[in-house]
Design a protein around this nucleic acid. Sequence first.
DNA 1: TCCTTTGTCTACCTATATAGTAGACAAACA
DNA 2: TGTTTGTCTACTATATAGGTAGACAAAGGA
Lengths: 133, 133
Amino acid sequence: MKLTTKSEYAILALIYMARNNDKHFVKIEDICGQYNISKKYLEHIVSFLRKARYIRTKRGASGGYRLARPADKISVAEIIRLMDGALAPTLAVSKYFFEHTPLEAERKVMNVFKDIRDYISEKMERLKISDLV
Amino acid sequence: MKLTTKSEYAILALIYMARNNDKHFVKIEDICGQYNISKKYLEHIVSFLRKARYIRTKRGASGGYRLARPADKISVAEIIRLMDGALAPTLAVSKYFFEHTPLEAERKVMNVFKDIRDYISEKMERLKISDLV
DNA sequence: TCCTTTGTCTACCTATATAGTAGACAAACA
DNA sequence: TGTTTGTCTACTATATAGGTAGACAAAGGA
């Protein structure tokens, strides 16, 4: 039931950028220094965020990363779905990543899992990066 | 955020046994036939359940599997923890499988994740196999 | 006692995901 | 033109997911 480091690190990087968004482009060294994350690995993760247009980048001296949109317009749900996929406990109850599984034969478990899916996704949908700085 | 087939199949097997517990030992063929699961793989999963004393087995003709305790004494939380580990979205907020992660540096995310952990684990703790037949 | 029917155990396997690392390259900018 | 940043492609090690194969053990019936 747990997230991978991809989601965790992406969320941390976005929080860090949100916190410094007025100032300047933040360097990747600053982010990985702050949280003690491998630099080369974080580059990888941050490139997903750039390709999905959550952040803007600039090269060269005084370059770095910053948010491409206001922090209150980026939900944690989107970031997790981008990095890790489904928020639901099984694909059989996932809205974005639906797939058939044998669990569908048991209605009552399905209902419990749907309830959990709803709780998590509503919560994560409402939760914006701006709520976390 | 999703469970593996180990948890899914274990829960299905237990539901099936609970439903037939008065009658007889159920054969593994019956279970995997019911849900369309690989027999050899299900054997594997079911052996975890036996070693953890959730089910009793009998060999030979008229052998099979049955619950080792009442279905209302087996929670879904235990089964998921046995098969897949933590119910929490990150080990940093897990009670049973705690580990340090960089996320601990951000208090607000931690609180949201703790809330989700509580919701899931209370729900799964209260949910018994007997509720699912 | 032997045969059939079940479960048990050990080992093996393949594909994918996870969590990185290495290094050449591109663009700012001073 | 050199330094400082990010970009891209490739590579790697280890674990996990999801199985399969086959010899073996025990229960029970003929």
